[in-house]
Amino acid sequence: MSTSLLNRYAEVLLWALDTARKTPISKEDMVLVRYHAPALPLAETLFDKLLERGAHPIPRVVLSPAMEESFYGKGSDAQIGFHAPGEKEFFLSLNGSITLHAPESLTHLAKTDPSRIAYFARSRKPFKDILDERDARGQFGWTLCIYPTEELARQAGLTLEAYEKQVFNACFLDMENPVEKWQSILEKADRLKSWLNSLDVQKFHIEAKGCDLLITPGDQRKWLGLSGHNIPSFELFISPDWRGVEGTFYADQISFRSGHKVSGVRLEFAGGEVVRARADEGEKFLHQQLATDTGARRVGEFSLTDKRFSRINCFMANTLFDENYGGEWGNCHIAVGSAYADSFTGDLSTLGPEEKKALGFNDSALHWDLVNTQPKTVDALLHSGKRIRIYENGLFMHP
């Protein structure tokens, strides 16, 4: 990336982090910058800009593919579940996190026992809970992005140049002032969220060639989107009451997760839980992930993307981009695993574990987005008995 592109990307990420928090990052705030080695140029640019703000940037390089293979292949339970001294205190003081995803391999853990990966996820959940609680109190915010690599381009079936162009266009880095563009998209999304939140919905009905799914939004819920948590992000989503999910969902998008490739996922829900799961590729890994914990077989998120927002028009081999796919028909996705408490309409600081459980907010160490890009319709079944169409073939049907 050129210096100008790096600067624009960094400015967009800092805007996203500020948007994800109740107040912008300020002097003395601690901000974790996690990155794969190929993303070093962007990490350096962010480091510099955070220093200019008076914040304390804390850079950390994530494990290389070889390190991950060793870790999950040779690590004992004690080693995989190890927490370094001071780690809890670190997360209790952290104000922000920016993750730069730039993988050098997407399939290096294909022969690794998936239960080892699930064990690690469970061991880290206490830190996730700490950050979720700080986020609810307005003391923490996070965002993430990708930095183009040869591996991402290869797995997506694109040249590196074509892949980079998709990233630049999706994030509006080809514009002189991308932050201004993101702000305008945010304002349009806010109008759509206001409309969706005004509807007294009992259930959503999603129909596509491989999908026939009922989602119950639940009590005290609101739609979210463009919160700054992801760049790019065009989706509007809700964390539903997991107990009211019934029917079938099909993910036609390939998913790369924890060094594994999974395609053609078909999930059947009854009583709010996955009762049957199949995949054309990676089925063993799918079953292992769904066995992570009790909540891994339940839905934590339901999402729709309007194709008028997104400039992403091809498979990118990265969930961040693929869950925001615009293309010809837009997309919808569900996430099995943890819910977003931000979807609660009340005061987040009062939403404790028992309250979350009572409202049907799912809890899990897993959060796995599974994407469908087929032509589809989504109807809202209102408590009044009326049925209205809210989404069709990639477009929200805002009156």
Rank of each mutant, 00 (worst) to 15 (best):
G271F: 06
V336C: 14
W242M: 09
N230I: 11
A296N: 10
L351K: 02
Q288E: 15
R297D: 01
K356E: 14
F315W: 03
K284W: 02
P240T: 07
A341I: 14
G327D: 02
E301T: 13
D306W: 10
D252C: 13
V299L: 09
V275G: 11
E268C: 04
V262K: 03
E328G: 04
Q253D: 13
E235D: 15
L236P: 05
F321V: 04
G271S: 10
D322A: 11
G327K: 00
R257H: 09
L320Q: 15
A335M: 06
H260M: 05
L286Y: 05
R276Q: 09
F249I: 01
G244L: 14
D241W: 10
H333M: 11
W329F: 13
L226Y: 03
H229Y: 15
S239H: 05
L226C: 12
G352S: 08
G228Q: 12
I231Q: 01
T305S: 09
G259A: 05
G259Y: 02
A317V: 07
T345D: 09
F256Q: 02
T350F: 08
T350K: 12
V274I: 11
G282P: 12
V336R: 04
G330F: 01
K222P: 10
H260T: 09
N318P: 00
D219K: 15
E301G: 14
S310T: 08
V299T: 07
R257S: 07
L348P: 10
L213C: 04
D219P: 00
G295H: 07
L348A: 05
V245M: 03
G352T: 04
Q288H: 12
S227P: 11
Y325M: 08
G271V: 08
R221E: 11
A291G: 11
G244K: 06
L290E: 05
T216R: 12
I254W: 05
G228T: 06
S227F: 00
T305Y: 02
E323W: 00
A317Y: 01
G337M: 11
G330W: 01
D322M: 11
L348N: 09
A317L: 09
F269P: 03
D280W: 10
P217E: 00
H260A: 07
H287A: 05
K307F: 02
A317R: 01
G272N: 05
R257I: 12
S233T: 14
P217M: 06
L224A: 08
R257Q: 08
S310L: 07
I215E: 03
W242A: 06
P232H: 13
R266G: 06
R297F: 00
V275Y: 10
G225R: 12
S263V: 06
K222C: 03
P240K: 11
G295K: 04
K307H: 10
S263P: 00
S349E: 14
A270F: 00
F249T: 01
V336D: 02
A341N: 10
R243K: 15
C314D: 04
A277Q: 00
R243A: 08
R297N: 01
R278F: 04
S258F: 10
L213S: 07
L304T: 09
S310C: 14
S255N: 11
V299Y: 04
V262P: 00
L267H: 04
